[in-house]
Simulated assay, not measured.
Amino acid sequence: MGVALRPLIADYKESLAWDQLGGTAAIDAYNALYQFLSGIRQPDGTPLMDDEGRITSHLSGLLFRTANLVEKNITPVYVFDGKPPAFKEATLAERRIIRANAKDSWERAVKEGDEETARKYAMASSKVDAFITDSSKELLTALGIPWIQAPEEGEAQSAYMAAAGDVAYAVSQDYDSLLFGTPKLLRNLTVSGKRRLHGKYVPVYPERLILEEVLNGLGMTQVELIAAALLIGTDYNSGVKGVGPKTAVKIVRDGKFSERITESENAADPEELIRYFLDPPVEKNYTIAKKAPVQEKVFEILCEQHGFSEERVSAGLERLGAKKGQATLDSWF
């Protein structure tokens, strides 16, 4: 869900054409998987499933939307979350309740034949479990697409890789990557290119945020931006009741952060949270390696195990640069 920074940084968003986005992208894998699970569904919200009832929406997304990135000269590196920090448990527990309630509402809407309502609640009920994670990693390995396991937060890992210059930017729909210090954040890269809004589909374009421009525009340091986020509320704390983005900035600028943060109902130490954003646990010994897709393995996973059409999978592999009988992706690295 992330922190509600949108009102503060709206002026610093830059819409870009796809031909301006070439380079290596560290993608928040869980963020992308939730997008695939939420968006790739039947009209009534039922996810794509194989004959055994296993969800396959995420596998479809990984193949075809990754192919879309590759065709646009973007080299994806998927970064998976590890164990969440202890102070995130309250947020995770709340999300579990929301998903459970959404699932109940979805099932009721399906029984009533209300497809519009059913789809809305189905999207909110999406869950990334061990099967989703493990099957995603298996498919990415077979496709030759690099992925990295973060020790804790994937967005922190992506930000570290971007700051180190090993990737061109971090990709996520959330703004937390800015708090973790990514120099560049790109949004809307793993969405379908359109979004349903008020019953209609509207186009979605890639957005870029440059941290230096955000900080300079707000007249804040990285620590001050984190402090403002803590006043608003993050995945790690509840924030201060009644404090929105603009008020949070004013409090920080007036030097009253320490005074006001004590009003937060969350027991987490704000100084500990600031330190976490500035220096989170990350994997520093990683390799972003180009590999050829193992086409036989891709067909085994998607077609034999999950019932995908061989024709569709072949088309996806060709979009990734793998011609029939060809075993290299050198053309897109």
Rank of each mutant, 00 (worst) to 15 (best):
L320S: 08
S158T: 12
R54M: 05
K194Y: 13
I210K: 14
L273D: 05
R95Q: 06
F257L: 06
E259V: 09
N266F: 14
A67I: 03
H198V: 13
K291T: 13
E311S: 10
A86E: 14
L140G: 03
A26L: 04
H306C: 01
D176T: 07
Y276N: 02
E107R: 13
K290C: 11
P151Y: 06
L186T: 10
I145P: 11
Y286K: 08
P146Q: 01
R312A: 15
T75E: 12
S136E: 12
Q42D: 15
V223Y: 08
N266S: 14
C303V: 10
E296P: 06
D330S: 09
R312L: 14
Q173K: 03
A170L: 14
L59F: 05
A90H: 13
D279T: 02
E311Y: 10
F36A: 05
T141L: 14
M220T: 06
K250V: 06
L185E: 00
E138T: 11
Q157V: 03
E112R: 07
L140W: 03
Q326K: 11
T262V: 10
A268Q: 06
E310K: 13
K324W: 09
F299V: 00
R253W: 01
L16D: 03
Q295C: 11
Q20I: 06
A109W: 01
T133Q: 11
K256R: 15
G255W: 01
D279L: 00
A170T: 15
A327C: 09
G307V: 07
Y236M: 02
L186H: 13
I232R: 04
D50A: 00
S38H: 12
K241L: 13
A32C: 02
G45E: 00
R260H: 11
